[in-house]
Design a protein around this nucleic acid. Structure first.
Length: 376
DNA sequence: TCTCTATCCTGAGACGCG
DNA sequence: TCGCGTCC
DNA sequence: ACTTCAGGATAGAG
């Protein structure tokens, strides 16, 4: 689940690191997105009467519905997504993954019991709890993306880290994610949930890594140690040390080794066999493909191919699919013209003011803090 | 003052019709 | 502009 | 995972 309380810490100690921008101001931008996380969310959320959408043969289509329309929406807004698929999770994560596995196995056991007892209600309940993106779902999505003319990358390790490599290697402008650990990996720019912002007409939250470091007065290495102290997926934390003490200690002592030497370890006992050094190494040197070895290309969709795949195989409505392909073609034409920065700056300011004015009048403004953490 | 815990609360995809 | 039924 | 669930917010204890 990323870094515990990092968003709040940044809001409190480095507020200028986050700025809110209108969706429009991202016209022409390329964005890296964790595909595995999207697929999982679609499998969870795209349902009808509690069941996933499926074709006549019972093959699940929820992930394809979600991916198809979300991608079109982004292209329609002049944003060019590049999807990144997870590879093998780092071994260090197994501690965290073990917990999930235990929960899974428990659910599997319960499912067996319910099946034997013929308890259909519980069968459904525990089947739902076992949802996860299978290799088949991933393959379906890769095929669809290829046909749509949208690039994707298969990461050797964590997708989030690969997204960051693409940003910092200047292949894309930023990573679009809900997971704050993109910042721990050092992404120059992070956009929080750009698709959601668009749908709900909320501004995009853009985080600048340099401003985070500047605001917290830390180097990247110190920031990584801070994140580990606050709680990451790779190792435990020191009981009694939360965001406040963590940032104070790191600002003063610069790294976890020095922190350990300077605190009363009886009062603040570090976890036994604490693997903070390994965690630090994973954040500093994650297993990724170098950006220069990756080429991202957005092309026109293979409309007949998309129709064949989505309609013939999965039973989608042909008119809707063709309609979507037209949007892809149209949107691409606009976005390939590139950005006209001065022009869009003016537009963004204007509409931003307008939006604020509207919020004042209609008090419909909802806090943009709602969030949805991934299954971690 | 700070952190931890328990408890409550909310929102979790996208489209399009009316 | 929404609420809600539907997408497959 | 909408007949649920996880995460944020909040208050109160230590």
């Amino acid at each position: 689940m990323g870094i515990h309380n990092l968003a709040k810490l940044i809001a409190d100690f480095a507020p200028s690191a986050m700025k809110e921008q209108e969706m429009k101001s991202y016209f022409g931008r390329k964005i890296a997105i964790d595909a595995s996380m999207c697929i999982y969310q679609f499998l969870i959320a795209v349902r009808s009467d509690g069941a996933q959408l499926a074709n006549e043969d019972g093959e699940v289509t929820s992930h394809l519905v979600g991916l198809f329309y979300r991608t079109i929406r982004m292209i329609d807004n002049g944003i060019k997504p590049a999807y990144v698929f997870d590879g093998k999770p780092p071994d260090l994560k197994s501690g965290e993954l073990v917990k999930r596995k235990e929960r899974r196995q428990e659910a599997e056991k319960e499912l067996e019991k319910a099946k034997e007892a013929g308890d259909t209600e519980n069968v459904q309940k525990f089947e739902r709890r076992l949802v996860r993106a299978t290799p088949q779902h991933n393959e379906d999505c890769k095929k669809l993306l290829k046909l749509m003319g949208i690039p994707y990358v298969e990461a050797p390790g964590e997708a989030e880290a690969q997204c960051v490599a693409l940003v910092n290697g200047d292949k894309v402008y930023g990573v679009g994610t809900e997971d704050m650990d993109a910042l721990t990996f050092g992404t120059k720019v992070m956009l929080r949930q750009p698709h959601t912002s668009e749908a709900k007409k909320l501004p995009v939250q853009e985080y600048s890594f340099n401003k985070v470091l500047e605001g917290l007065n830390l180097s990247h290495e110190e920031f990584i140690d801070l994140c580990i102290l606050m709680g990451c997926d790779y190792c435990g934390t020191i009981r009694g040390i939360g965001p406040k003490r963590a940032i104070e200690l790191i600002q003063k002592h610069k790294n976890i080794e020095a922190v350990l030497e300077n605190i009363d370890q009886k009062k603040y006992p570090p976890p036994e066999g604490w693997l903070f050094k390994q965690a630090r190494e994973l954040f500093k040197h994650p297993d990724v493909t170098p950006a220069e070895d990756i080429e991202l290309k957005w092309t026109d969709p293979d409309e007949e191919g998309v129709v064949d795949f989505m309609c013939k195989r999965f039973g989608f409505n042909e008119e809707r699919i063709r309609n979507g392909c037209q949007k892809l073609k149209k949107g691409r034409k606009g976005a390939t013209q590139g950005r006209l920065d001065s022009f869009f700056t003016v537009v963004a300011n204007k509409s931003s003011n307008k939006r604020k004015a509207e919020e004042m009048n209609g008090k419909k403004s909802k806090k943009a803090k709602g969030s949805f953490k991934k299954r971690k």
